[in-house]
């Protein structure tokens, strides 16, 4: 049975090894300079500088002079076309722009690729600089591409520290490991501070007396956070000021076990501790505070 299968074959027309083109003096000079990392133009009889150089003045056909002028390396984009999906033969494998670039000192423009990242970055007038190929052979692609001027650098800053919890904080965290909130009572103004601290913020007096506080308290106020945070289980989450019973200053903590919009100012809550075997010297021992079900407290 005859089939309708198309009869297809692949055909490659390739001169083995590539054409060997002689450049003549002008193009050769240009490519030789490129290989050396310089961009040159040639001056016409009228004094214009052609880049890339031709052997003749494109306007008149007259021969150019033998004066070469170093130009660039930077240039100004006069027009550009954005390539969203590059083809395999394109000089770049990511979106880029073709551009006409008037190199500094030139009177004509050069066609080349610009690795701009974003089409908006390449309006006419944009300044671009060549990116040189690491191994240059004497070809127009010795310039890998042009890129916009450097207007920003990325500066990684990552100092490392070794933080030690000593003093009052350690005392407090040791309490939390035992499942107890340790506060301190100021001998001068009788205020109870939690977490336990070394001195009274109001009068500066050193705090000696430790007070064990219950793990119940009252929400004085709170925020419903709609921005995710790694320390919270989900969005929205409630961060609340919780005044522990017997304390004079609220602690900020997560509220859980209740929908965010049912949290109220005055709501009574109790700490939900992680199992004793999982406790460490950290506030992570308290998963969150959860409503006790008691009647709301009166707020002043």
């Amino acid at each position: 049975m005859e089939t309708s299968e198309p009869l297809v074959a692949r055909h490659v027309l390739e001169f083995p090894g590539g054409y060997t083109r002689t450049t003549g003096p002008v193009i050769g000079r240009f490519l030789t300079e490129l290989r050396a990392g310089r961009i040159v133009g040639v001056r016409t009889a009228e004094g214009r500088v052609l880049v890339p150089p031709l052997e003749y003045d494109p306007a008149t056909g007259d021969p150019v002079t033998d004066e070469y002028v170093e130009v660039g390396p930077a240039g100004t984009v006069t027009a550009s076309a954005w390539v969203q999906e590059p083809r395999p033969e394109h000089p770049l494998d990511r979106p880029f722009a073709w551009a006409l670039i008037r190199l500094d000192g030139a009177d004509t423009t050069l066609v080349h690729a610009v690795d701009a990242g974003d089409p908006k970055a390449l309006r006419p007038g944009a300044r671009v600089w060549p990116v040189w190929r690491e191994r240059r052979e004497g070809g127009i692609t010795d310039i890998a591409c042009f890129r916009p001027e450097v207007t920003m650098i990325v500066s990684p800053v990552r100092p490392e520290y070794r933080i030690q919890a000593g003093g009052a904080l350690r005392t407090f965290l040791e309490g939390v490991r035992r499942g107890v909130f340790l506060g301190g009572r100021c001998a001068t103004c009788a205020k109870v501070y939690v977490p336990f601290r070394a001195s009274c913020p109001e009068c500066g007096t050193r705090i000696a007396e430790q007070v064990e506080l219950p793990d119940t308290g009252t929400i004085t106020t709170f925020a419903i956070n709609n921005l995710p945070d790694p320390r919270a289980p989900e969005v929205p989450f409630v961060s609340a000021y919780i005044l522990l019973d017997g304390a004079d200053i609220p602690m900020i903590a997560l509220v859980g076990g209740v929908p965010a919009h049912e949290v109220r100012q005055g709501m009574r809550v109790r700490a939900e501790w992680v199992p004793e075997s999982e406790r460490t010297l950290s506030m992570a021992n308290v998963r969150w505070f959860t409503p006790t079900g008691e009647e709301d407290a009166e707020l002043s």
Binding site: R162, Q164, A165, G166, G167, A168, L169, R170, R197, A198, S199
Partner: peptide, 8 residues
């Protein structure tokens, strides 16, 4: 580091 906080 003695473990003291800056206020301490």
């Amino acid at each position: 580091d003695s473990g003291q906080s800056e206020p301490e």
